[in-house]
């Protein structure tokens, strides 16, 4: 049996990589994917911790489940916003600097 610590390390590594990805990717969608990956890494960590601690209340699993739920909602929201943005600006020449300044 694989010890829980391995999953923890895996979770940490994935989280870190996804974070670096989020910080460096130029594509919005890629950024969204990185966020998803980060969430998954956290979910993995929760599961592993739950097992490692032998928590009978299944806190880790519950948390992991909710992580999934939230990330689903999140990707939905994210894509919707991206789409909306694209629609608004699609047909006109975009003033990107305006955007940068907020």
């Amino acid at each position: 049996m694989v010890p829980p610590i391995a999953f923890l390390i895996l979770g940490a590594v994935v989280f870190l990589l996804a974070m670096i990805g989020f910080l460096t990717r130029r594509s919005l969608v890629q950024a969204l994917m990185c966020l998803e990956l980060m969430t998954s890494a956290v979910a993995l960590t929760f599961l592993a911790l739950g097992r490692a601690l032998g928590d009978r209340s299944m806190t880790g699993m519950v948390f992991a489940t909710f992580c999934m739920v939230i990330s689903a909602a999140e990707i939905g929201m994210g894509l919707a916003l991206v789409l909306l943005y694209f629609r608004k600006h699609g047909s006109t020449s975009t003033d990107d600097l305006d955007l940068m300044k907020g």
């Binding site: 923890l8 979770g11 989280f15 974070m19 980060m38 969430t39 890494a41 956290v42 960590t45 929760f46 911790l49 490692a52 601690l53 806190t59 880790g60 948390f63 992580c67």
Partner: peptide
């Protein structure tokens, strides 16, 4: 990131 922090807290 906070979520990860929560995981670590839990751990």
């Amino acid at each position: 990131v906070m979520l990860y922090g929560m995981a670590l807290l839990y751990g």
